[in-house]
Design a protein around this nucleic acid. Structure first.
Length: 884
RNA sequence: GCGGGCGUGGCGGAAUUGGUAGACGCGCCGGACUCAAAAUCCGGUUCUGGUGACAGAGUGUCGGUUCGAGUCCGACCGCCCGCACCA
């Protein structure tokens, strides 16, 4: 095949340095012209879908963002070479708060700001040479995308997966606006500084809790997910079996309640109960507050903090004694005081607990503060009863019941069962006193956001008909363009006419829903949309089902729970509503580490970007100064690359100075991909030296090699065979490393192969041998194996070696098993568990032979000093250990 | 506060998952080439003692299991991620 003229070698003399600036742009346009990364839906090859979590278009991309795309690209290019039809798309998670903040600060329309950022970032990404099918690109703020999302919402509504409930939000009383948790700092609004209040709002929820059991069970099937992510999701879903117990009030509570219901997973500790606690949001708390001013003040106090669980749980435990009492179910005459307590969450169980201080840390902290009794009722076996006390630390371990009447002597599980059995059989206020219950920590997903820059929720509120869905024909509900950000709060709500609409049912004057959807909704199905990005329905089920699941998903560990769980839920909901037929969205998951960089600060504390800094090392001490003024600069801690710390490096300057290949190579070298990598100028230089080294090797050898595709080999010297062995070992090892996403190891093996080629090259040559053939094989393998990492250099080198086809069109090399087999192996020889020598044995030596050889070894004789060995442990192929 | 993870030379890390601790790279030291420098090439580089062969110590700290522990178990220290309205 003839190459287009633009691809003719730019370098003629082999001594010239490799110039990535020209070369990279050129190969990128060749790939583009040939449409190599387009993936047709009707391709007979097996499919492979590789996806990296799509970016938020925050402004400019920095090199830190590009690490996970580089990983994905290595996988994509590798799979293509293995004969797969690879889907590797890119898009933009484009709704969200930063666009609104920019609008307020800079008077830019969120839409304009977002699309301008996307344009910039797309250009930046393209510099990196990723093998992406750009024809499938979309942004979640595209009308085309959010229109389909509204369709999904309405289908979910029909399927009973949408609910309307009340939920708390952070309210800034000065700005008169709802705040996100991250906008609440130490209980105050980030802009106004006002003390945040909690407000109840009626909002839209997706019924993820209906799938709690299934989402939990199916975790077992996700074999190619990191264990830690599965564990985190398991804990998050938080299935627990327990008992709902109905405590009787002594007397009547406000509002006429006779019963206080609690949920507990520890009914065995019932005899250790010393108080009851209600959530400040419990209905009974409100009843009490209606007539009790102090209770009202306490609840108000609890509500003067953010709504996040973190804020609730890190606050010092406090409570208010309501004066109410409940009867202990088993102890006649024993009454337990009822508190309202700040650490009890309304969202879990019944919003009320019985406190057993000895066996729950939160209860203990609370009891110690209010002088409530602490009675240990579960005692570890190894401690005597008289010695067992609980003071500052609750006892959570196993043991036997004490101080517990009929439970005494039982184990924890047995006691739980006994309490359940007895209470179930007893009636209070016309119902059994207890019932077994399975509870989940997972709550329904509140998707309402009081913001402009999001997907409008396609509902209409009518005075008579209630909440009515927008009719199919009226979709999409578009965001209005003429909005103002002069005031905080939701511009949709303030808009003079947008929300005015006729009720689709009765035709009366009605009002649009002004809340938009949580941006997590946008990212919960984008992976499915990529399979048919322009379709007039959310998906084309046959196409989506053929491409999905994503074979390899790559993204940050910070998404371990919410994004991944929501996507798993959406997959089920979309299957339920006929848009997909799929069990799980992501068959393989990999969580990559971040790119971190030193920070630099001027004496006044202002951050400086790396390009304005010169770092010097004098007698082991690194010192930084300003590149222009020479003024000293403080080297700060190493942190995640971020705009605010100004410790970013852009793709442009890397592309300009070293080339994308150097950056790609460096980011995957050294650090294992799941861990952070520290970007440093020295590291980049090192990677670039390797690029130049490969170029010298290839151009230096090209003229003297037999032509590409020569038959062979003829006679080979010992050294030639050694090089062939090294080549085929590298093919095996690099392949395995990429398969397992251990890119740093793959790179180490490639270094090794390059070293072996250099050693072979500098050795004595026997003219009667086909050394050039072995050398060509080694160089070609090296180029093909590094192709996924440094695709531009690989193409250029491949061409220099006389090939017409592109690396991007060439099959992955295969290792020859005959060259991988070793006839002799070297076993480490230990004496008493410490390595003393190496033992060279035949590959198929028997255990007895190895044992004899070990005992005969000089070092064994020396260490045993004539005593007979007590034991010889032989692990075939691994190790020999002589125990003396 | 709760949940999850991580910790190995001067530095990034490797170690076939219980079997040679330090692969590979960076840095540093020495040498070659050069008028010189850069670039490049070759050699060395965990620590301690020894000219050396070699010996001892060593994977955050303390303890345990094992013929054998970076890897498994327990306690502690430090750092990172998440906690439902950041994306």
């Amino acid at each position: 095949m003839d190459l287009p003229p633009t691809t003719m070698p730019s370098m003629t003399a082999s001594t010239e340095r490799y110039n990535p600036r020209n070369v990279e742009a050129r190969w990128q346009s060749v790939w583009e012209e040939r449409g190599l990364f387009r993936c047709p839906d009707d391709d007979p090859r097996p499919k492979y879908y590789v996806l990296e979590m799509f970016p938020y278009p925050s402004g400019r991309i920095h090199i830190g963002h590009t690490r996970n795309y580089t990983m994905g690209d290595v996988v994509a290019r590798y799979r293509r070479a293995r004969g797969y039809n690879v889907l590797h798309p890119m898009g933009w998670d484009a709704f969200g708060m930063p666009a609104e903040n920019a609008a307020m600060q800079n008077k830019v329309h969120p839409k304009e700001w977002t699309y301008a950022n996307i344009a910039t970032m797309r250009d930046q990404l393209k510099l990196m040479g990723f093998s992406i099918d750009w024809s499938r690109e979309f942004a979640t703020c595209d009308e085309e995308y959010y229109a389909q999302q509204q369709r999904l919402f309405l289908d979910f509504l029909k399927a009973g997966l949408v609910r309307r409930k009340s939920a708390k939000v952070n309210w800034d009383p000065v700005d008169q606006t709802v705040l996100a948790n991250e906008q609440v700092i130490d209980g105050r609004g980030w802009r106004s500084g006002a003390l945040v209040e909690q407000r109840e709002l009626t909002q839209w929820f997706l019924a993820i809790s209906d799938y709690a059991d299934e989402l939990l069970e199916a975790l077992k099937t996700l074999e190619r997910w990191p264990e830690k992510v599965r564990i985190m999701q398991e804990k998050w879903i938080g299935r627990s079996e327990g008992l709902r117990i109905r405590f009787q009030f002594a007397g009547t509570a406000p509002g006429g309640a006779e019963i206080l219901e609690v949920f507990t997973t520890r009914p065995d500790t019932l005899f250790g109960a010393s108080f009851m606690a209600l959530s400040p949001d419990h209905p009974l708390s409100a009843e009490i507050a209606a007539t009790d001013e102090k209770a009202r003040a306490f609840i108000a106090e609890c509500q003067r903090r953010g709504t996040s669980a973190e804020a609730v749980e890190t606050a010092e435990k406090s409570g208010y004694d309501t004066g109410l009492k409940v009867r202990h179910p088993f102890l006649d005459g024993k009454l337990l005081p009822v508190y309202i307590a700040n650490f009890v969450l309304m969202g879990y169980g019944t919003g009320a607990i019985f406190g057993c201080p000895a066996h729950d840390q939160r209860d203990l902290d609370f009891a110690n503060r209010y002088g409530l009794p602490v009675t240990p009722v579960v005692k570890p076996d190894e401690v005597a009863e008289a010695d067992f006390t609980v003071l500052e630390e609750a006892y959570l371990g196993p043991g036997r019941l004490v101080h517990s009447d009929f439970l005494n002597g039982m184990g924890v599980e047995e006691a739980k069962e006994e309490v359940a059995r007895r209470l179930e059989g007893r009636q209070v206020a016309g119902a059994p006193q207890a019932s077994r219950e399975v509870n989940f920590r997972l709550r329904d997903w509140g998707i309402s956001r009081q913001r402009y820059w999001g997907c409008p929720i396609p509902m209409i509120h009518c005075r008579t008909c209630g909440a009515v869905p927008v009719p199919e024909a009226d979709l999409p509900v578009r965001l209005p363009q003429d909005i103002d950000f002069d005031k905080p709060g939701n511009p949709l709500d303030r808009h003079p006419s947008w929300k005015d609409v006729a009720c689709p049912q009765c035709g009366a004057q009605a009002r649009r829903e002004t809340d938009t959807m949580d941006t997590f909704v946008d990212s919960s199905w984008y992976f499915a949309r990529f399979t048919a990005p322009r379709a007039a329905t959310p998906t084309v089920p046959e196409i989506a089902n053929a491409w999905l699941p994503v074979d390899q998903y790559i993204g940050g560990i910070e998404h371990a729970i919410l994004h991944l769980l929501y996507s798993r839920f959406f997959t089920r909901a979309m299957t339920e509503t006929g848009h997909l037929d799929l069990a799980e969205p992501f068959a393989g998951l990999f969580t990559q580490g971040m790119v971190v960089h030193e920070t630099y600060r001027e004496p006044d504390g202002a951050f400086l970007p790396p390009e304005e800094i010169v770092v010097e090392e004098k007698s082991g001490v690194r010192q930084a100064r300003h590149a222009k003024t020479g003024a000293p600069v403080e080297i700060g801690p190493i942190e995640k690359m971020s705009k605010s710390k100004r410790n970013t490096v852009g793709p442009e300057e890397i592309s300009r100075n070293y080339g994308a290949d150097t950056a790609r190579w460096f980011m995957l070298s050294d650090s294992p991909p799941e861990r952070d990598v520290q970007w440093s100028a020295a590291g980049v230089e090192g990677a670039h030296r390797f690029v130049q080294r490969i170029w010298r090797m290839v151009t230096g050898a090209a003229a003297s090699l037999p032509p590409a595709g020569s038959p062979g080999p003829g006679r080979l010297s010992e050294a030639d065979i050694g090089l062939r062995r090294a080549t085929h070992r590298a093919i095996r090892d690099v392949t395995e490393a990429i398969e397992n996403l251990r890119f740093n190891r793959a790179i180490a093996f490639l270094h090794d192969l390059a070293n072996q080629i250099a050693i072979h090259d500098s050795g004595d040559k026997d003219d009667s041998c086909d050394s050039g053939w072995a050398q060509r094989e080694a160089l070609e393998s090296l180029i093909l194996l590094m192709g996924p990492f440094m695709p531009h250099l690989a193409e250029e080198a491949w061409q220099v070696l006389g090939h017409d086809r592109l690396v991007a069109e060439t099959d992955w090399p295969e290792a020859d098993p005959a060259l991988l087999r070793e006839d002799e192996i070297i076993l480490p020889l230990q004496v008493n568990g410490k390595k003393r020598d190496d033992l060279k044995v035949a590959r198929d030596a028997s255990v007895a032979e190895i044992e004899a050889a070990a005992l005969a070894a000089e070092c064994v004789q020396r260490f045993l000093e004539g005593r007979p060995a007590r034991k010889v442990i032989v692990v075939p192929g691994r190790i020999v250990n002589v125990v003396g």
